[in-house]
Write a protein that binds this DNA or RNA. Structure first.
Length: 377
RNA sequence: GGGUCGGUACUCAAGCGGUCAACGAGGGCUGACUGUAAAUCAGCUGGCUUUACGCCUACGGGGGUUCGAGUCCCUCCCGGCCCA
């Protein structure tokens, strides 16, 4: 179901193929985030045009609304949201972190209180496995205990070890319910080498279908990421997909690919689109062949890597900028027009910006694959 | 013509003698967003400057009272409503 098609000679980057019941995914790839069964602001038809290969949705949020009985009646998540490609769901583990104010962790599982209604939901690892099975997803994630940064070493260790114990329960329960999805384990351990190694080794013993690196970009200094990648990837089998969860900025993705990561997801392109930030190629014909330089920043405070920049389309200077938004899917619309749509709060603003940023991210991935193929990355 | 209520920063709108360059909202400007509680959140928004518990200019105009006035008094101008 998974194969490495080509290994780079310049880095740990690799071209991969992942077969799922809903299609083959060529890696390295990026999964647009559709937490609540929708990539915010765009329809399935608009999404398909962008060729994302696979999308990510969320167990916890779908369990709350509309709930699995409704999605089962609809014929599964694919039919419900009219997306016929592969779907990966996060287990709800990230909500242990992002909704930390509203949950209690016990060894049995996590109890969440819905912030809007106060309703309590119990989510043990087994429930997460069952829900993902009922959603009918292609790839399910193990239910993990995500801890933020900074945190006491002992707390990070405890969360990591609990993640391992829960991982075993996830595997066992998947077997019990005869779920057909591929199940990925998630390495935790914060910024500590010892803990990352222990986590990876224990999970590899369990023979998951793929391995994710979780608990990254949860507040730790950015320069820690490379270390985490180096330590962890070295422990993971070459024959299984590697997934860096929640990342990231374009240059972070390029770096991670060079460290041997195959899969990504991130809220950045869609969320920042809604907030008016657009990702722009510096060179109209994008070229991550300059990828080696992509981590160098122009200076303190600037976010740009060397091959792209970001703009805030709401800035006053774009009011009279009639240049096209991009050279591809929105070449007929000017920046001045998009600026106007944002300033007047027309819903079309967010839709166009989302289409633009996703196109950027998916083009980035396509170029990364091309460059690996050509031996440039 | 008489009566009455009101005129505050880009807009709306608090303010009822000092702690008011003036609450709040909108607008404007800028920034942040990394397995989405996120169409969200944060800062700035009279001028100047050594950006400071600093100096100017400001609450319709003018004149008073007072140590001190956006706040009290007189008067003029303008607007709403009521009566003629």
């Amino acid at each position: 179901m998974f194969s490495v098609v080509k290994k780079s000679k310049k880095s740990a980057a690799r071209l991969t193929e992942l077969k799922t019941r809903h299609g083959i995914i060529r890696g390295p790839f990026f999964m647009p985030v559709a937490t609540k069964a929708a990539v915010k602001n765009i329809s399935a038809e608009e999404l398909v045009v962008l060729e994302p290969q696979i999308i990510l949705s969320n167990t916890y949020h779908l369990m709350l609304a509309p709930g699995t009985p409704i999605i089962k009646r609809a014929g599964g998540l694919h039919a419900f949201m009219q997306w016929s490609g592969p779907i990966l769901t996060d287990s709800g583990g990230f909500q242990v972190f992002s909704l930390s104010k509203f949950r209690k962790i016990t060894e049995h599982g996590v109890q969440f209180a819905d912030p809007s209604s106060g309703t309590r939901y119990l989510l043990p690892p087994e429930k997460s496995m069952t829900v993902q099975h009922e959603l009918g997803v292609d790839i399910a994630m193990a239910f993990d205990d995500v801890i933020g940064y900074p945190a006491e070493y002992a707390a990070v260790e405890q969360a990591m070890q609990r993640t391992t114990r829960w991982a075993k329960r996830c595997i066992a329960h998947k077997k019990k319910i005869k779920a057909k999805y591929a199940l990925f384990g998630i390495v935790q351990g914060g910024t500590h080498k010892q803990l990352r190694l222990e986590s990876a080794r224990e999970l590899v013993k369990l023979n998951f279908d793929g391995y994710a690196i979780g608990g990254v970009a949860v507040g730790e200094p950015r320069n820690k990421m490379k270390n985490i990648l180096n330590w962890t990837v070295a422990e993971l089998p070459e024959t299984k997909p590697r997934y860096l969860m929640g990342l990231g900025r374009p240059e972070e993705i390029v770096t991670a690919v060079q460290h041997g990561i195959d899969m990504f997801d991130c809220v950045i392109p869609t969320r920042e689109a809604r907030h008016g930030r657009l990702y722009i190629w510096k060179n109209p014909s994008p070229a991550p062949r300059q990828a080696r330089g992509t981590l160098s920043r122009k200076g303190r405070g600037t976010r740009e890597g060397t091959f792209y920049k970001t703009i805030n389309i709401t800035n006053a200077k774009f009011a009279k900028d009639f240049s096209p938004i991009n050279q591809t899917n929105l070449k007929q619309y000017s920046k001045a027009y998009l600026h106007h749509l944002f300033k007047t709060q027309e819903p079309l603003a967010m839709r166009l910006a989302t289409l633009h940023n996703l196109e950027f991210y998916l083009t980035l991935m396509a170029d990364i694959r091309k460059n690996i193929q050509k031996g440039l990355l």
